[in-house]
Design a protein around this nucleic acid. Structure first.
Lengths: 160, 160
DNA sequence: GTGAGTGCAAATGCTTTGCAGACGT
DNA sequence: ACGTCTGCAAAGCATTTGCACTCAC
């Protein structure tokens, strides 16, 4: 059980929006709720599907505008995980990165602390501050590695 | 353009194409030449601009088809460096990665060996084989770091 | 000669934008 | 009441695809 403020059931992001003087519209709240409920990364369209169940008239354009706003506010992060699907994610307490399998599309979450040494080294040697919330590593997942050992050239493959 | 025979100064990628039984069309050769001459990463449109000077009637669709082919052949790598520009690059001898500044768009090349320890660790702990040629790290470059220390929220900024 | 490769143009899919009306503060 | 936010539809942009023709082999 965590310590809460005066409103026991209001998530922290509502207070955060208030603090930034951003209007609490139902659309914004329901987008945040979608991201919070789902937990992981969602595409704009996935958010629309989820949201449409309780807020049918919401528009995809609005979703995009809200996501841009939330990213500027620092509540949401954007991640390009491959070519055709930009994903969005609520920034939570546990920073992590993504391992994207280029064969089957599986996305694995990677503990954020693993990257710390590399980040430090890049900061020292290049003066470049790597954003810990905006990273994807592409490659082949264990399953595809085992399945495709005999293969010489990358192919389109999808797991059932 | 007529059939080319073996030439002592022909780049390695021509032999590689032959080895894979892929046809050596002038379009393919000129796309490879563009990538080889330019050295770094190019967007499909940049390749078109370069190629159009000596091969005016080439189509952007063909560029994309050729790039897909070259990627499958392992001669070219694709890198999503930010949202609106997919870049392509000839795979050379010195593997490297990209540091993309989300403020000014600068792209810094990162020595490939820096990632080796992280790759090994991910392979051990997750069984995931990170593709060493397909990586971008996003963050803030030294210049923007120094220039924007007082800033609290990321903004659109472009260096001259 | 034959099948793969190409040019053209239209289609696609994701994202952004213009504008009039709606709504949170 | 004010200025912002939203819905709708249309535009934008990079990328893909269908089809007839061309060309490397």
């Amino acid at each position: 059980m965590t310590t809460r403020h005066f409103r026991p059931d209001s998530p922290g992001y509502i207070e955060q929006l208030r603090r930034l003087r951003l209007r609490l519209t139902p659309q914004r709240l329901v987008v945040l709720e979608a991201l919070a409920t789902h937990g992981g990364h969602m595409t704009a369209d996935e958010i629309l599907q989820w949201v449409a169940q309780r807020y049918p008239d919401i528009s995809l354009a609005t979703i995009y505008r809200i996501l841009d706003l939330l990213i500027s506010a620092g509540l949401v992060s954007r991640a390009d995980l491959g070519g055709n699907a930009t994903c969005f994610e609520l920034i939570g307490d546990s920073p992590h990165h993504h391992l994207v399998c280029t064969r089957c599309g599986t996305i694995i979450e990677l503990d954020g602390t693993l990257l710390a040494p590399l980040r430090e080294r890049i900061l020292c040697e290049y003066g470049f501050q790597v954003d810990p919330r905006h990273l994807a590593l592409f490659g082949i997942c264990r399953r595809c590695l085992t399945a495709g050992q005999t293969r010489t050239m990358p192919q389109e493959t999808t797991h059932p």
